[in-house]
Amino acid sequence: MTNSICLLLSTDHQRCDELFTAAENAVHDHHWDIAGANFQAFLRAARRHFDVEEGILFPAFEQQTGILSGPTQIMRREHAQMRELFDDLESGLGAQDRDRFLGTSETVLVLLQQHNLKEEQILYPMADRALAAGVPQLLQRMREHGVA
């Protein structure tokens, strides 16, 4: 259990969540510099997370189970939706437009959380079970890409 896909990627979710909230709080307090730094850190972490999933985990899962149009497809679609919203947030931040940033971040928070919920409750445990013996090697590759 300590060395599972579920644990590694859920921990990474938490790290992304914390950076995201820190950025939101800073915007709320009109601290635009802190907000910018936190938001950029969040973007790097979130994009890396998506890339590792789409580049390593999902292909391995699809190959092992033969399910191509199942959960991984839906997760990819939600990643795309979030990437679009991240762009919105970035321009809101650039324009120092507090209402726009916080309005969109409300959407992102809910989308992100329900996405994480589905991954942590369903997809990751499924992947841990399906990939069984291949898990350690997969974890190694994900760590090499900076997910720790």
């Binding site: 189970t65 033969g66 399910i67 149009s69 959960p71 997760m75 997809l123 499924m126 399906a130």
Partner: peptide, 14 residues
């Protein structure tokens, strides 16, 4: 268990 994933549960993250 992979047979189990081909059923409707596989598509369940809908």
């Amino acid at each position: 268990e992979s047979a189990g994933y081909s059923g409707s549960a596989a598509l369940s993250v809908d």
